[in-house]
């Protein structure tokens, strides 16, 4: 379980300071699909970065499975990211010159796992995600949807307790987007906590818990009804 207690995040100083998060108190439950929903600039990516240990709050606390992230140093945070979290980015952040296999196995390479073991794990996952025929292809040779699936495989390969997906469908066509969302739903159904950052209500409807963000202020709520439009548009 990840808990954010009275988290504030302010970028910059003085008159130019931007208050990205204001007294945010939210809980990410284990094994649940949680969406962080909000318009562009509402602070949702900032919130995800706090949860993933990519960024630190200006005030407040982030707790992950009883660990206070603010008390960890940079190396401990790197280890936290390597063991506990998996990231899926909008722009994939795959290394284009590496093979799909190497990209997926990267968290395991960093963890120092033996080559045979890590490759077996990555291959198994890629087969499960329908990418068996792409294993030895370079990441640059894949379509957007395939890249995002590879990215999801990389986020899952080391068995993290939480997968953080930042606008994973943002660069995909609607068909690929749907496939990716189905995949993330499956991951949640298999018992992992999935945190989806999105501005897309349709994507957020996959989630069991929703954190709605408006101008840095968070509101926790249950699933979004099929016909509901939170933006009121």
């Amino acid at each position: 379980m990840i808990e954010l207690k009275h988290v504030d995040k302010i970028y910059g100083k003085g008159d130019g300071a931007v208050h990205a998060l204001k007294d945010v108190c939210v809980t990410i439950r284990d094994g649940k699909f949680t969406a962080i929903l909000g318009k562009s600039g509402s602070g949702k990516s900032t919130l995800m970065n706090m949860i993933g240990g990519l960024d630190s709050p200006t005030a407040g606390e982030v707790w992950s499975d009883g660990k206070l992230l603010g008390a960890l140093n940079k190396n401990q945070l790197a280890a936290y990211r390597n063991r506990t979290t998996g990231f899926v980015f909008q722009s994939f952040y795959l290394e284009p010159t590496f093979t799909v296999l190497d990209n997926v196995a990267m968290p395991l390479i960093i963890a120092g796992m033996k080559r045979k073991e890590r490759e077996a794990r990555a291959v198994e996952l890629l087969e499960k995600l329908g990418l068996a025929d792409k294993i030895h292809k370079r990441a640059s040779e894949l379509s957007g949807g395939q890249k995002q699936r590879v990215s999801i495989a990389r986020a899952l390969v080391h068995g993290p307790s939480v997968v953080l997906a930042d606008e994973p469908t943002g660069n995909l066509d609607s068909q690929s987007g749907r496939e990716v969302m189905e995949l993330l739903k499956r991951v949640a159904d298999e018992g992992k906590a999935v945190v989806l950052v999105t501005h897309n209500i349709a994507d957020a409807k996959y989630a069991e818990d929703v954190i709605f963000l408006r101008d840095g202020v968070a509101e926790m709520r249950g699933p979004i009804a099929e016909s509901e439009n939170l933006y009121g548009e």
Binding site: L54, K74, N75, A78, R81, N82, M106
Partner: peptide, 9 residues
């Protein structure tokens, strides 16, 4: 990317 997946300094 390497840092995001856990590579330290």
């Amino acid at each position: 990317m390497m840092k995001a997946v856990g590579l330290d300094a």
